[in-house]
């Protein structure tokens, strides 16, 4: 069973696409996409256990630190770049967004929504840094150094002149609730964005 955000991405990726999956973890998405939709491509990962799991599955994985960019990939050589739950752990998420849309015209990004109501309760009422299913770390050992909200990300895309072609929220216990569709920044725990650049390079 795949994580909810991966299920959604699985639906969004077109048949036969050539893709990069940044921070691909144990390769479960690439494996399912190759099997179900004839998708090809590579996962990038730095976690040793994730890399070994990919190799055991037959998923092509490259040990590569995303903070070093995607310099080894040429412009417009992929159909799509996917990055799940890693944007917030990068040194410069804005530059990674540029890199992703350099090697492909389109990308799919998911990240924990810091403005999720439970996170607001933690910070706004109780006065503590939020800890939740999507943000399981304590403030002192978290890899998540650039937390943002649904609204923040939309703002960044607007500033960069990017088009958001689709967006969705992954929610813990409130799946399909009308409120998440109406107020995603409040009720969405995981933000899922599909973004493309407007012009050919």
């Amino acid at each position: 069973m795949m994580r909810a955000d991966l299920e959604l991405i699985h639906r969004w990726v077109p048949e036969g696409a050539h893709i990069l999956d940044l921070a691909c973890g144990d390769g479960i998405l690439l494996e399912a996409l190759a099997r179900d939709k004839g998708v090809s491509g590579y996962g990038l990962e730095i976690d040793p256990e994730g890399i070994t799991a990919c190799i055991a599955k037959g998923v092509s994985v490259l040990e590569q630190n995303l903070d070093e960019g995607l310099v080894n990939f040429e412009d417009d050589t992929y159909d799509l770049v996917v990055m799940t739950q890693a944007l917030q752990a990068l040194r410069r998420p804005d530059r990674m967004l540029d890199e992703m849309l350099r090697v492909a015209r389109e990308c799919i990004i998911t990240f924990p929504n810091f403005a999720y109501w439970r996170h607001r309760v933690h910070l706004g009422i109780r006065g503590y840094m939020p800890v939740s299913k999507s943000l399981p770390h304590a403030w002192y050992d978290t890899p998540n150094i650039h937390l943002s909200t649904f609204n923040d990300f939309e703002h960044l895309c607007r500033e960069k002149g990017l088009r958001i072609t689709d967006r969705a929220v992954g929610i813990g216990d409130h799946e399909g609730h009308w409120a998440t569709r109406l107020w995603p920044n409040l009720f969405g725990e995981i933000a899922i964005f599909r973004v493309e650049r407007r012009n050919r390079r």
């Binding site: 994985v61 490259l62 990939f73």
Partner: peptide, 10 residues
Amino acid sequence: TRAGKPVSYV
């Protein structure tokens, strides 16, 4: 990877 070949690098 440029040639589109299946490869894992560790």
